[in-house]
Amino acid sequence: MASASLPRVLCVRNLSSALGRTAIQTRAATIRAWRPVSTASCLRWRRQEPVWSGLPTTSGPRVPSVAQRWSSTAALSLQELEEQVLSVLKMFDKVKPEQVTLEAHFINDLGMDSLDAVEVVMAFEDEFGCEITDEEAEKILSARDAIELLKTKLDVH
């Protein structure tokens, strides 16, 4: 019976209407040309140059993530880790860069909400190419917390 294939079709239809417009078509095209993308190139984050230059088909310039830059060379030093964590925070568009310090609390000092905090932790994952579990993520509420965790994950001294 045709009913067996029906749910899949419905599913796509629901999604495309939920996401709107031609999202599915463009997505299908881009997934074929998929490559890992650093969050540094995510639109939401401040950057010097535009992520894409207005053309949906071309991919814009990409900033290599720390994982890509450092994987084959020397290990990250603690100072570099600190700088990198702070710069990820400063790029977050809801945060005033001048307020970012190692000790600033994401929610109390930087004015984020709990969903923003989730997004920041995801950005750390992208930037440093590591996986952070739900339990670990819940404890990251300042740059210092992130550095302490990433130190052990990335074996930084």
Binding site: A18, L19, G20, A23, T26, R27, T30, I31, A33, W34, V37, S41, C42, L43, R44, V51, W52, P56, S59, G60, E119
Partner: peptide, 14 residues
């Protein structure tokens, strides 16, 4: 896995 940076941002915003 939703595609490039654009699709990803679109999904995040939604």
């Amino acid at each position: 896995d939703a595609g490039g940076a654009r699709e990803r941002e679109e999904m995040r915003r939604w």
